[in-house]
Design a protein around this nucleic acid. Structure first.
Length: 936
RNA sequence: GGGGAAGUGUCGGAAUUGGCAGACGAGCAUGACUUAGGAUCAUGUGCCGCAAGGCGUGCGGGUUCAAGUCCCGCCUUCCCCA
């Protein structure tokens, strides 16, 4: 390497990164301590689940968040940026069942490994505040919250049909059941309904408040998802009585009051039938004996369908008449009661009033079963000669009420809805009501590896909460893991058997544990004083968090993480904070003031390995007798594609465990190659005998997964390029909120840039030049423009343009170096560059900072500020448009007035050419930045 | 079916209030230095055209001196909900 006077080694991240990481740790550089002289800033990024490896997605989420936290710190804030582990959960227990390792050991080992991996990132995590949710010092407070919620009347236990995953062998919250197929969000198995006695938290008490986002700056997408999830609708509940003769004598007459919820009480007069959900408890009570068999068969059939199938408006409606009638309370009409699967037990009351003319599904149902379709909202375009035409479809729109007794002529839905509701209330047959889609939070899980639910069952006293003073209810270590589908706690005598805290009699403990989302609902507070008062006995009046820490740091100022938690974690934690507020534990309403979501890094598209197979034709397929593999990395040395009777050769496009799909020509023709189990497969670069599933097949953009072998491992990247390069690339390569496929090539651009920075600062110029007059000014302009842009872009999470602006500044330095090296301006410029690099690439920034002899540490320096005066240019170039097309440019003094710019523009040679023979209609000079000439 | 987000070179992506489309980087091409290059440096690179010029931000209209950006109507992809 060509060098100037000072010998300086090449950039070597393997040496400088561990060096500075150790120094920062020794110096406690990132320890967050309360300091009332500084504004606090709590930056938080979602904590990982310790599954064994930190992957590139974690880096993508955390590294830019770290850069922003560091930026905030340099701006003068006292920044807290903690990290911990969401350590309870199913994978640990599955590992225990499948491989005989204890969940605790498995989890803690994974945490040790992941903590090391996270340290290599060089983030400013304050490890002194680490919190691990599966440790008693943490979950003791999770239990405490359960008791506090219980005390506040927000906890109840009920028998209910709940979603149950047969594969995970536990119940799930409604939020954990995904989409049309009703699959488990964890394992992908289809969820079934099960009737179990379970614990619920009354999140619905806070439904309305959770709809209010006015105090937080959160992504629109999240707010919309939460709003839809809560699903508030306003309307009325109306009581329909079952016709007295249809109610069996041995039934309490009060049971004959069928309450329905409707968002359109103004259409009540058009209700000509009622529909009950197949699961409705009244169905078997009122069904006439002659209909019993049919109705029962229908109930069974309905239970087999998914919710999606049942609710689809496209679907042919099905249903069955019960033989019973109800009375429409507004006109005393006798209306038939049907059972149909398009009514769900989970929504409203599980019973609806059918208004055929004004609801699409009711219309289809009524059409199918030839029920009356009376119109009660005037539909102007469907009336001819004053008589209504048969409706082609339902009319849910506006119009005046008709055929509705006292309300004829009232405009609907407004103000008709209010008026009808008042009228119903006066008569005691209905009232205003609000319905929510949101259900209470089901927190019971039939698993071992979770927070014990602090409840004791006593034959005399019933369910009794464990006294606060007795917490924590410890999870026993010595349990048997059997794939029985029941919690091992059920068979642990020492855990199970206890005495009733109320009467002292023999009792048993609750063996279900809590949903892991309970842990993460309050972890942002746990960091403030991890494992607070561990080992001490506490009461219900205690505070789970050190009050001084809480008062200073909370709430979170910026929260970053994945959008996949929109209706689970991000809703639960808001709920949790609101309850904590009502319990007097915090004095604010929202846990995180600002929230931003990063996208997902997908796998890199890659070509498959090439296989060269000798064998014989077998119909349209080919049976392999020998097989040679050429790695996808050596594409140039692949043999040409072949498809003959004895040989098939080409890129592997897909495979399963007995066959390969091989692309045998450039037009994409595929041959299926059958491979017997014992066939020898040599994979280049792999020890010993391979299996055909080890051969890599062609991949388009897909999620990273171990089975597809397209996972990008941060550890490998750090080993090859250093953490600084990985951090910078993750900030540069994608729009952060969006993410996208990985591209290994892009990394090269960043390492080149970093090497250039290193060389620019550490090497003297090879061919110094005399400085021109404008050079210092030009460099300073570049510096101040960069400071201005980078400051704004850091603030707005626009990380890719942060890097672009820093690269531009590097280019400017590169140009200016021969003339300005070691001048005052040069020093100002490289100082500013290093300060701005510090949040992005903390190690190299520190190393070069030290190299320049500046005081340790670059990370405790103030963020540079920009001077507007520095941005002003003396001469500016103004583009000149003629009829909207750029026809010339004029360079003119920046302080020239509009008239001078106009004159210069009109004088331009090329502009003149385009004005020839035309008449200038108008000349516009917006903000002196451009000239627009209109000609005819 | 309803709601939301997105659509810009070969690729990732830039583009305050409507104001020079394609910043920055990758890739590619040419050259320099090299025993060598997948290193480094320099130059070029939206498309068509020798050029003048023309065409270009999913498609079709509109507003405007000026539209990636605003309005209307479509198409495609992804997400959420029913």
């Amino acid at each position: 390497m060509f060098q100037g006077g000072i010998a300086m080694p090449e950039y070597n991240p393997r040496e400088i990164e561990p060096k500075w990481q150790k120094r920062w740790e020794d110096d406690k550089l990132y320890k967050a301590v309360i300091d009332h002289d500084k504004p606090k800033f709590y930056a938080l990024t979602m904590l990982p689940y310790p599954s064994g490896d930190i992957h590139i997605g974690h880096w993508y989420a955390m590294a830019p968040s770290d850069a922003r936290a560091r930026f905030k710190r340099m701006q003068g804030n006292n920044v807290l940026f903690p990290m911990g582990f969401d350590a309870f959960g199913l994978p640990a227990e599955n590992a225990a069942i499948q491989r005989g390792v204890h969940p605790k050991g498995w989890t803690l080992r994974n945490i040790d490994r992941e903590r090391q991996q996270l340290r290599s990132m060089g983030a400013m995590f304050d490890w002194d505040r680490e919190a691990i949710s599966c440790l008693p010092g943490y979950y003791r407070w999770s239990e405490w919250f359960f008791l506090k919620f219980y005390e506040m009347g927000l906890v109840y236990r009920k028998q209910a049909p709940v979603d149950y995953c047969p594969s995970c062998k536990t119940t799930l919250a409604r939020e954990q059941v995904i989409g049309d197929e009703r699959i488990c969000e964890r394992c992908g198995a289809q969820v079934v309904k099960k009737d179990l006695k379970q614990w619920f938290w009354k999140i619905t008490n806070y439904a309305d408040e959770l709809l209010d986002f006015s105090k937080i700056d959160w992504p629109d997408r999240i707010r919309l998802l939460q709003t839809n999830w809560i699903g508030r609708s306003e309307g009325a509940s109306v009581v329909f009585k079952i016709a007295p003769e249809d109610l069996p004598d041995d039934v309490d007459p009060a049971m004959g009051d069928l309450v329905v919820f409707t968002t359109r009480p103004d259409t009540l007069w058009g209700s000509t039938f009622m529909v009950l959900a197949p699961e409705h408890p009244l169905v078997h009570v009122i069904t006439k004996p002659e209909h019993h068999e049919e109705v029962h068969a229908y109930q069974i059939q309905a239970s087999r369908q998914t919710e999606i199938e049942r609710l689809s408006t496209d679907k042919e409606k099905t249903g069955i008449f019960t033989g019973a009638y109800a009375i429409n309370p507004v006109n005393d009409a006798r209306i038939p009661i049907w059972v149909a699967d398009y009514v769900m037990m989970g929504y409203g009351t599980g019973a609806i009033m059918g208004v055929a003319a004004h609801d699409e599904r009711d219309f289809k149902f009524a059409s199918k079963f030839a029920l009356d379709i009376p119109v009660v909202i005037e539909v102007a375009e469907w009336i001819e000669d004053g008589r209504p035409l048969p409706l082609p479809h339902a009319y849910p729109g506006e119009g005046n009420m008709i055929n509705s007794g006292p309300f004829d002529g009232t405009p609907a839905p407004y103000p008709a809805k209010e008026k009808v509701t008042e009228w119903l209330a006066e008569r005691g047959i209905g009232k205003a009501a609000v319905n929510y889609r949101l259900r209470d939070w089901l927190i019971s899980r039939q698993r071992y590896w979770g927070i014990p639910i602090p409840i004791i069952y006593c034959d005399t006293c019933g369910a009794v909460p464990v006294p606060y003073e007795d917490l924590p209810v410890l999870l026993p270590d010595d349990v048997d893991f059997r794939p029985t589908g029941e919690s091992p706690l059920k068979y642990h005598e020492g855990f199970l058997n206890t005495t009733c805290p109320r009467c002292g009699g023999p009792a048993t403990r609750e063996t279900d544990t809590m949903d892991t989302f309970v842990c993460s609902s309050w972890y942002q507070y746990a960091y403030l004083s991890p494992y607070y008062r561990e080992g001490e006995s506490v009461t219900g009046d205690a505070t789970p968090i050190d009050p001084e820490e809480m008062a200073y740091w909370a709430p979170v100022d910026t929260y970053t993480g994945g959008a996949e938690h929109a209706v689970m974690h991000l809703l639960y934690t808001r709920f949790f904070t609101k309850v904590m507020r009502d319990a007097g534990l915090v004095n604010f309403d929202e846990p995180m003031l600002q929230c931003r979501n990063q996208g997902i890094i997908l796998g890199e598209p890659r070509c498959g390995d090439c296989v060269d197979v000798k064998g014989t034709r077998e119909g349209s397929a080919f049976r392999a007798e020998s097989l040679t593999v050429y790695s996808f990395v050596d594409e140039k040395s692949w043999p040409d594609p072949v498809s003959s009777d004895t040989r098939v050769c080409g890129e592997l496009m897909d495979r399963d465990d007995v066959s390969l799909k091989v692309r045998v020509s450039s037009d994409g023709a595929l041959v299926v190659v059958l491979v017997d189990e014992g066939l020898a497969v040599d994979i280049p670069g792999k020890e010993g005998q391979g299996a055909i599933t080890d051969i890599l097949y062609h991949l388009d953009v897909e999620k990273m997964s171990k089975s597809k072998k397209n996972v990008v491992a941060p550890d490998d990247l750090v080993a090859k390029y250093g953490a600084d390069t990985v951090r910078a690339y993750l900030m540069f390569g994608w729009r952060w909120e969006q993410g996208g496929p990985w591209n290994g090539q892009g990394m090269e651009g960043v390492i080149r840039w970093i090497n250039r920075i290193w060389n620019i600062i550490t090497e003297e110029p090879r061919a110094p030049e005399a400085a021109g007059d404008g050079a210092p000014r030009e460099l300073l302009r570049a510096v101040h423009y960069a400071i201005k842009s980078v400051t704004a872009d850091m603030e707005s999470f626009s990380f890719n343009t942060v890097i672009a602006r820093l690269m531009e500044l590097t280019n400017a330095l590169s140009r200016a170096k021969p003339a300005l090296w070691s001048t005052e301006v040069w020093d100002e410029a490289i100082t500013a560059l290093l300060l701005m690099l510090a949040p992005v690439m903390p190690h190299i920034a520190e190393e070069l900072w030290a190299h320049l002899g500046k005081p340790y540490s670059v990370h405790t320096q103030p963020w540079p500020t920009w001077d507007a005066a520095m941005l002003v240019e003396e001469m500016i170039e103004v583009p000149v448009q003629v009829n909207g097309r750029v026809r010339g440019r004029v360079t003119i003094s920046a302080d020239a007035d509009e008239e001078a710019i106009k004159m210069a523009a009109l004088a331009d040679e090329n502009v003149q050419r385009h004005l020839e023979g035309k008449q200038v209609v108008k000349v516009i000079v917006p903000r002196g930045k451009l000239v627009s000439i209109v000609v005819k």
